[in-house]
Amino acid sequence: MDKKTAEELLAISMDCSRETNESMRRVMERCDEETFKIYRGHGGRIMGYLFTEVIAPIQSEHLELAPPDFKPMQVVERPRLRLTKETQDELIASLNQLHERIEAMAGFVRENSDAVEAAAYRGRIHEVLVHICEAMACVLAAHVEEK
């Protein structure tokens, strides 16, 4: 990722982390202890995943954007597929189409369900999208062989 994109994503991530922290502060000030503990768990997961899945990988790639005490993440080499260019292109097209169809489900659920049900299903749909994106990354990182 280029440095400019990394800086922008870090800025958005830091804003989202601050907003999440602020929402937890509001709940702490306005609600009972049990409610705060429950909400704090959700907020903590949001902030934790934001760090482990977005902030830390960016800072590991661009150490100049990390704080002085930051310890870079270890890079784990994934096994790479061996594909022809034709197969790679077909798989990416298929995964892109699948992503679009599954993503559209979130909008459909939001428009046709109550708010609680919609939020739950949108989370589940998101998990499916995560795995589609991981498959895309795997296919795009493949060793492309000549026919």
Rank of each mutant, 00 (worst) to 15 (best):
M1C: 02
A6D: 04
E7F: 01
E8A: 15
L9I: 04
L10V: 03
A11M: 12
I12Y: 10
S13Q: 01
M14P: 00
R18F: 09
E19W: 10
E19N: 14
N21P: 00
E22Y: 14
R26S: 12
M28P: 00
E29F: 08
R30L: 14
C31M: 11
E34Y: 09
I38T: 11
Y39A: 12
R40N: 12
R40I: 01
H42G: 07
R45F: 05
G48V: 03
G48R: 11
L50H: 01
F51Q: 12
F51P: 00
T52D: 10
T52G: 08
E53H: 01
I55H: 00
A56W: 05
A56C: 04
P57V: 06
P57E: 09
Q59W: 03
S60R: 00
S60H: 00
S60K: 00
S60N: 00
E61V: 09
H62F: 10
L63K: 12
L63I: 10
A66G: 10
P68R: 12
D69Y: 11
D69T: 09
V75M: 11
R78W: 06
R78D: 12
P79D: 12
L83R: 07
T87Q: 15
Q88K: 11
D89V: 02
A93S: 14
A93T: 08
A93G: 06
S94G: 09
S94I: 06
L95R: 01
R101I: 06
I102D: 02
E103F: 08
A104K: 08
A104L: 04
A104Y: 02
A106M: 12
G107L: 04
F108R: 11
F108H: 13
V109G: 02
E111M: 13
E111H: 10
D114A: 12
D114T: 11
A115S: 15
A115L: 13
A118I: 04
A120W: 06
Y121A: 10
Y121D: 08
Y121C: 09
R124S: 07
I125H: 04
H126E: 11
H126T: 07
H126W: 06
E127H: 07
E127R: 09
E127I: 00
V128Q: 03
L129K: 02
H131E: 10
C133D: 14
E134L: 04
M136R: 15
A137K: 12
V139F: 01
A142L: 03
H143K: 12
H143P: 01
V144Y: 01
E145N: 06
E145H: 03
K147D: 15
